[in-house]
Design a protein around this nucleic acid. Structure first.
Lengths: 252, 252
DNA sequence: TGAGATAGATAGTCTGACAAGTAGTCGCTG
DNA sequence: CAGCGACTACTTGTCAGACTATCTATCTCA
């Protein structure tokens, strides 16, 4: 454990070569990992900035900037004299693609994925409706291309997944609602991590999924909001089914 | 020696330091304001860290930490030699209560409020449903108390608004979905700013709103998901109507 | 015993310096 | 003259050390 990025200290020679890699993002990620892994539970205090600097082999400046980033995302709170404490989970800005990316490797618990699925259930039908009325010609063309990437992927799972994610990204963008667009990016990140879980779905199911996505493209082209909503719900049904299958598979 | 520009010419302001923050959060807020106000448009470069330090009368350390926070929220991107550039709006983490709070004073444009209303339309009915099945006794009791605050506010508009916001916060929390909870905080911030716009609604409409909220409380107590959804939609209808009225009033 | 004074620890800020990366320019070579 | 590589200057990235502000905990004194 504590697999912190320490690659610059094995050359403890007093030589002043001083290779200084760009380390701030790595330190940020390492600290976030330590929080998500439970090494620093909610409510507990982190070591002092000086000690953290020693532990990671970087200056206090880097530690401070990393903590500022974590504080900006609601993970920690720094106060003079009392130190830096880990915030309660309710304060974590889980609606942040970066936070989710840090979080996912640790919390593979299904709860988060269930929450994301609920969110998709809430907004994707409406997003599809809005996209049907607001999508530009260019967006519909892009969507068509992404769909062809799915339908023509064959056994190329990577291409299928990538096209799938691109597809959703375009639909969210076509809603022309900045909040939905942002949530779309979150969903993208989540899909990236659930990819491996559902990568084993059968070709038949992939064909089903591609067909449902094709229905959505058609609905957008026809500017048919109702059909778009139905297609979105169909897509979600399939996604939920695949996720359930993957979950069962995992628990065996 | 790379001597920086002399500070001898920086005390040029004859007046009291009108906007010269001294601490990091203020600098962060000031920089964010300058971005949202259009002083630094998307794609443009900010002054160098040194110049910003001179402008705000703080050290480069403070400037750097402030920029790190802004970068964490997707507002800017720093790269060596090229400087710090303002990101495109699509990258702004608008789903962040702090960003919204910085943003709202400038962009009172109705577009953002419309986007938020669309978001509420998407998720609040589902949130109400989930709350009906998942709310704890304590949460229902809290909700009851918030509702009494609304119904008994009389002419105390502040109390009414505060109770209204607390009400929604509790409902979002009762969904027991971390993503919805986070979005709930966003909505809270938005409500705070739309408060002034709708503070002029008539007592009759406030009574209507209180009644609709009461229906939601009752639905949760009865664990009636369908009734909860209907009540949530009713609340949204009223909110939309008030917002439309306020908008018309403003445009006259 | 309790309230106020005090000491100490830690985040916050400042200063100055150097390293590292990069865009634009200069110079070399063909 | 053209193309391309080296060079320079500039800006962010990192480091080091010091001092300040603020808060907690303890200690002292009435």
């Amino acid at each position: 454990m504590t697999e912190t990025p320490k690659k610059a200290d094995e050359e403890a020679e007093p030589r002043e070569t001083a290779r200084r890699p760009r380390v701030m993002p790595d330190v940020t990620k390492a600290l976030a990992s330590d929080i998500f892994s439970g090494r620093y539970p909610a409510g507990s205090s982190l070591p002092t900035e000086n000690d953290l600097g020693i532990e990671y082999g970087v200056s206090r400046t880097v530690i401070r900037e990393a903590l500022k980033v974590l504080a900006a995302k609601g993970l920690v709170l720094s106060r003079p004299r009392v130190g830096t404490v880990v915030c309660d989970q309710d304060n974590w800005n889980i609606i942040d693609a970066q936070v989710l990316a840090w979080h996912a490797p640790h919390a593979l618990d299904d709860k988060l994925f269930d929450a994301i699925l609920e969110t998709r259930r809430a907004i994707e039908p409406l997003v599809a409706e809005l996209a049907a009325t607001r999508a530009t010609m260019q967006e519909i063309a892009d969507l068509e291309m992404a769909w062809q990437g799915m339908a023509g992927a064959g056994e190329d799972l990577t291409r299928f997944s990538r096209s799938d994610i691109a597809f959703h990204q375009i639909v969210y963008g076509a809603s022309h609602n900045p909040i939905f667009r942002q949530i779309g990016k979150l969903i993208d990140t989540a899909l990236l991590f659930s990819l491996e879980a559902t990568a084993t779905i059968s070709p038949v199911r992939r064909m089903e999924a591609a067909a449902a996505h094709g229905d959505l493209v058609e609905a957008l082209r026809m500017r048919d909001a109702v059909a778009a909503r139905n297609a979105a719900n169909k897509i979600l049904d399939l996604a939920a089914r695949d996720l359930t299958s993957a979950k069962k598979l995992k628990n065996n």
